[in-house]
Design a binder for these strands. Structure first.
Length: 493
RNA sequence: GGCCCCAUCGUCUAGUGGUCUAGGACACCGGCCUCUCACGCCGGGAACAGGGGUUCGAGUCCCCUUGGGGUCACCA
């Protein structure tokens, strides 16, 4: 068995988007499963559109996702000698020829063919030029491209796709495609193959949008005398309108960076992404890294395009609901100290971090996270909805203010009253604070909920949250008493 | 339009001829819990695109239709 070597070859013309991340993920999984190598190769031959910012974005994105690579990043432009050499080889071996047709002329022919609803293929004008004719045209200084000479034979070129099965395409349906521009620069189709041969790529796992490239590339492998790698074409990710998702038409919602900024856990994204077009054949949907590496196979990649279920303008489901659910799951179940490290970054960024959370107050810090994480969706919630646990400067939300405070004007005296009673407790624990709260409600002849939810609003600023009596000891007597005693301003504005 | 690929709940999917009155997850709805809630638990509605075959028997195999996607550059 030869070594498994796969590659992820993004072109740096935009930030890493979830389709690309998914491709990277599957390649990574296949490499890790087989103790193989993942090669990161930046295909930057399109100098016009390639940017350094994009290269950084791709690398940052992969790093954040935890998709580590073993070789690279290589840059395609550094291997242009290889590509040119290969083109020369094809020319010399008769697998390619020079074509002097101008772009304008071809565009015209193409437009005419399209208008006549005919096939839009190169007509082979220069395919059989004699050496003299070629020399003559070159002497006249007519620029030329190099075209691959597709074998003129009946039958089909085929390959065995690991997910799609045998794919066939008639030779007669493949036009003589250009492999080198008139400026001497080789094109993607060729570069890609040459790089894959040089990098000894054993498996090419890529999107189905490459399928028509593949038949042509198989021809290139054969003409170059190289072994054809194993192909696995994964289904595409579409939007609700069944259009291919792209940075251009969908914006930030499809960029990996968006999820990082929104407080998603990288592995939650990976776990979600892998399920878009793959499943283990069991009911398992939540995987640890190791579990996924073990469960992953190319054969179980689906043939069917999947839809990224995102509806614009939905505040609750600001991205695919399943992705949110996946993130919530990990938020709730992950190791609490690992969560602590992630939330620490959020707190630092918001200037809410207290050094003692790392030592003296570490137990408190982790217990607090554990208490509040059940209802959160992303890491960002810890500094927004959870802000009152880490700062005295937090917002009282309008909805609970209206519903739980303003609706009961007497709370203006009741809550400070409750505060004073709580202040007297020597044991500020769950049972005691509950007893005191309920006793006061009984004395006042009001439903305990009025007091409790009023407290919730004042102490956390939120409409919903964990059990109030669990919250009180976490906040601590001093803060509770202080906050309950200072509520006049709530009625003034 | 040519070529290639695909077709099970709203979405992600299980299903490789009988165990499918089609299973799971998310979402949705209802109930329980309850001091609140987008926690949790329990329950519910929800799909084999259509038509022909093959077969004792088809979601599963074949054909056609329809639908969807990809691709058709001197981009990658």
């Amino acid at each position: 068995m030869t070594e498994v070597r796969v590659r992820f070859p993004p072109s740096p013309t935009g930030y890493l988007h979830i389709g690309g991340a998914r491709t990277a993920l599957l390649n990574w999984l296949w490499a890790r499963k087989n103790n193989g190598k993942l090669i990161l190769r930046i295909e930057d031959t399109d100098a016009e559109r390639s940017t350094n910012a994009s290269i950084e974005g791709i690398i940052d994105g992969m790093t954040w996702l935890g998709l580590d690579w073993d070789e690279g990043p290589y840059f395609q432009t550094e291997f242009s000698e290889n590509h040119i050499q290969a083109a020369r080889q094809l020319l010399e071996s008769g697998h390619a020829y020079k074509c002097f047709c101008t772009k304008e002329k071809l565009d015209k022919k193409r437009a005419a063919a399209l208008a006549a609803r005919q096939d839009v293929r190169y007509d082979g004008t220069c395919r059989n030029l004699s050496p003299e004719q070629i020399l003559e045209k070159e002497a006249q200084g007519i620029p030329s491209v190099i075209r691959f000479k597709v074998p003129e034979k009946t039958g089909v070129v085929s390959y065995d796709d690991k997910v799609l099965g045998t794919i066939e395409r008639a030779y007669s349906d493949i036009e003589d495609f250009v492999i080198v521009r008139s400026n001497g620069k080789p094109l993607y189709l060729l570069c890609n193959v040459v790089d894959d041969i040089r990098d000894r790529i054993s498996h090419i796992i890529r999107g189905q949008d490459h399928m028509t490239n593949t038949t042509r590339q198989v021809l290139l492998y054969q003409a170059l005398g190289a072994q054809v790698p194993v192909f696995a074409h994964m289904p595409l990710t579409l939007d609700l309108q069944k259009k291919k998702i792209s940075k251009r038409s969908h914006g930030e919602i499809v960029s990996v960076q968006f999820y990082r900024e929104k407080g998603f856990l990288p592995w939650a994204l990976c776990n979600f992404l892998v399920l878009l077009g793959w499943n283990p054949g069991t009911d398992q949907e939540i995987f640890s890294r190791q579990e996924l590496i073990e469960a992953f196979t190319l054969e179980r990649i689906s043939k069917v395009n999947s839809i990224f279920n995102y509806q614009k303008g939905n505040a609750k489901f600001f991205t695919d609901p399943k992705l949110i659910a996946m993130n919530e799951h990990y938020l709730r179940t992950m190791d609490i100290s690992r969560l602590g490290a992630l939330v620490k970054k959020e707190l630092i960024a918001e200037n809410l971090w207290d050094k003692t959370y790392d030592d003296d107050k570490r137990d408190w810090y982790l217990a607090t996270l554990d208490l509040i994480r059940d209802r959160f969706h992303t890491l960002k919630d810890f500094t927004s909805a959870g802000r009152a646990y880490f700062s005295d400067d937090y917002e009282i939300q309008a909805k609970p203010l209206k519903k739980n405070i303003l609706k009961h004007p007497d709370l203006k005296t009741w809550l400070p009253m409750l505060g004073k009673r709580l202040a007297k407790l020597t044991d500020f624990n769950e049972e005691e604070v509950e007893r005191v709260s309920r006793e006061l409600a009984a004395e006042l002849e009001i439903k305990p909920g009025i007091l409790i939810n009023g407290m919730r609003t004042v102490l956390t600023g939120q409409l919903a949250g964990p059990s109030m009596f669990a919250i009180l000891p976490v906040l601590g007597k001093d803060k509770v008493v202080a906050r309950l005693g200072n509520i006049d301003h709530l009625y003034n504005d």
